[in-house]
Design a binder for these strands. Structure first.
Lengths: 163, 163
DNA sequence: ATAGAGCTTCAGAAATTTCTGAACTATGTT
DNA sequence: AACATAGTTCAGAAATTTCTGAAGCTCTAT
């Protein structure tokens, strides 16, 4: 533990996983940095320095992470530099963002059902697809609810610090 | 309904959604074609014709769809052309394929926990991340089980007929 | 007010992904 | 056995994504 080299290597590895998952490259690296830093909050400059990226690239990454709600801007301590940090519910948010993908699939299926005739193979197939995504969408709220309960009931990794 | 133009437009639209979700472009278009065709099975040639794509591109797309288990090769009727069709459980498979992504996140978190010291902010953050993905992974089997039950009990979520 | 640090935007460069076309392999037909 | 059709592979072309660097804007402190 406490292996500085291993830490950033692990961070970059996580960034790759996030990229596969659909995040843009620099956004993924930035998110990983937020996770692996020991600072309570970081500035754009610090991110750029650690990732060896231009200010422009960092700016874009922060913008997109803010947009999807994974990080938040801290009420400025009073200074020139903006401070950001990972949001408390970042993981649930990241997971939930797939709801929109599921809804999009549902819509696509519905559109297909509209333009095909009842009984046609395509119509049947699309109906099954719609059923699945409808089911999935209906299950998600309960799943997140169980997560919050699970969290409340003080499981492992419990001791939070505040700031 | 039964609008040939609208049908393929809807198919291409679904392909875009699938692409956002991480599928390669041609694989996504091919999968959409499998969904929207009225044929019970299709050949590589038919796909290439409909999508106006080269045989090489189609070959690659089929290969990758087979690899993730979304389509299957039909026991050749006896001929030269290979026939393929969408697998019955394609949607559950597509959904489940995210399990590997979740496992990858879990592994990345674990790696980070290894190289940080207990009590460090990063260590705490990574622990919370691990907790979430552990929870998620544990929930998935139950969710798929409920889907299969839901399916059995024949409620096709609406006014569709069965076949 | 002015200076200057930090941030954003954007055009063009660089890197990556994706597709085509042609050569090659395999298989069924005559 | 020879031919022809279906499918696969792969190098290079095309398209797309992503990043840099520079210009411009904003806001704090002097």
């Amino acid at each position: 533990m406490d292996d500085e080299h291993g830490r950033w290597e692990a961070a970059e590895r996580l960034a790759l996983v996030l990229t596969e998952g659909g995040l843009q490259r620099m956004a993924a690296r930035t998110l990983a940095m937020f996770l692996f830093t020991d600072l309570q909050s970081v500035t754009a400059g610090e991110i750029g320095e650690r990732l060896a990226a231009s200010a422009g690239a960092v700016s874009g990454a922060i913008k997109s992470l803010l947009a999807v709600g994974l990080i938040e801007r801290l009420p400025a301590p009073g200074s020139r530099r903006e401070h950001y940090r990972l949001r408390e519910d970042a993981w649930a948010t990241l997971f939930t963002s797939q709801n929109t993908a599921i809804q999009a699939m549902l819509d696509a299926a519905a559109a297909g059902i509209e333009v095909t005739r009842t009984g046609d193979p395509a119509h049947e197939r699309l109906s099954r697809m719609r059923d699945f995504y409808e089911f999935l969408l209906a299950e998600l709220p309960g799943l997140l609810h169980r997560w919050h309960q699970h969290q409340q009931s003080g499981q492992s990794a419990g001791q939070e610090e505040r700031r």
